[in-house]
Simulated scan of single mutants.
Amino acid sequence: MKIAYFSSYPPKACGIATYALALRKTIKDRDHSIEDFVVAIDDREQGYSYGSSVKFHFWDKDGTSYQTAAEFINNSDANIVDIQHEFGLYGEKVNTETVGNNNGENFLIFLRALKKPVVTTLHMVYRKPPKKHISVVKEICDRSNKVVVLAHIAKKFLTEKYDINPDKIVVIPHGAPNVPKYATAFFKEMLGFDKKEILISSFGLIRPKKGYEYLIEAMAEVKKRFPNAKLLLAGRAHPQKSPEYYQILKDKVKELRLKDSVKFVNKFVNYPDLINYLMATNIFVAPFLVMEQVSSGTLLYAMGAGRACVSTPFDYAKEALANNRGILVPPEDASKIAEAIIRLIDHPKIRHRMQNESYKYARQQIWSKTSKQYVSLFKEIIS
């Protein structure tokens, strides 16, 4: 079997690229006989310096290259094409009001020209999709042999809101790290924290709608009760989406006199660093403001490291943290975030129970199990 991956790909710094790399690596680790190559989408005209696995790449805003990319794959000896899809990845700005500058046509040019079996993973499925969005997603599903979603709530939305045949949809969880559940002390000291400090953390590209300003405000309340609490915000300021937001966060830290209590790590967090940060963490917080989000690698990775989690009730979090696996708080509410953090610090038994339940949940979704499901699906389609 030979797989052609169509996705953004490292060194591009984005969640889809990280996902594609992890999926490709764990599939190769599972079966060394499987061959593959990557067709990568660049978000800048000059492209990136890719490794040897990337055989073709192009600028996402060059409409003619989508046809060329499809022809490249058609002329290859690939048996199947694995596509990672998220609106906005293919040179289009997309939200719940608009599908994009060209209504998703860039990606559809590629998909219409493709002549190989296709599995498309949909990372973005809206609870309240606009009409044009529905037609684009329907065509993606029609032209794919199967579509993969990362959570059961996403399958529910596709069947109920987009009228997609449920037989076309396969739920394969995101993929979680396969790591032991260590105590935090060693990792805190390795990263320069005191082992007695209470470390609260969050990770990802720093951009508006992440809600980090409310987490910083919550820390001011947490510090009153627990002076040894520290906040770690790790992630690069998003280059296209308001770098000034990063400065707003820093100004808020200064305003609240939290300079010694909040640490910023302004870089894209790679996998080894992410695991080390999570291993040092006592409480992970996802204060996101966009509720229509059907996947979150950072939240699942925190659960996979066995950490207690606090999150706003975006769609994926409601599924992942159900059955008291974590605490859900309203968006834009610093006082409720602080209340949840303080509760977890105040009640170690509750925190430890949540850690155990989170870890148990994520263990069912480690990357080796996710890759096994993808390989089985690919083989089923090819045969």
Rank of each mutant, 00 (worst) to 15 (best):
V136Q: 15
K25W: 02
T298M: 10
A317N: 09
S368K: 09
A302I: 01
K155G: 04
I34F: 07
R353L: 13
G104T: 02
K181T: 01
N270E: 07
L289P: 08
K210R: 13
S311I: 01
K2W: 05
I27V: 12
S8H: 08
Q365I: 00
V290H: 07
I382E: 14
K181F: 02
D31L: 01
H352G: 04
K336Y: 07
T26K: 14
N75D: 11
Y50F: 12
L321W: 14
A308M: 04
G306R: 06
Q46E: 15
L274F: 05
T64N: 15
T184F: 01
K241Q: 11
N228R: 13
K146L: 06
S371H: 00
L278F: 09
L321E: 12
L199W: 02
I109P: 03
T120P: 12
G100T: 02
Q293N: 06
E292N: 12
P330Y: 11
L256E: 11
A322L: 05
K318Y: 00
V269T: 09
A338K: 07
A218P: 08
N106F: 06
L328W: 07
F187C: 00
R207F: 11
A4K: 03
E105Q: 13
S296G: 12
H352R: 15
T98Q: 15
K25N: 11
F37Y: 09
Y271Q: 07
K369V: 00
V149C: 04
R30N: 10
A176H: 03
A151D: 05
V310T: 12
T98G: 14
E160K: 12
R143S: 11
K131F: 12
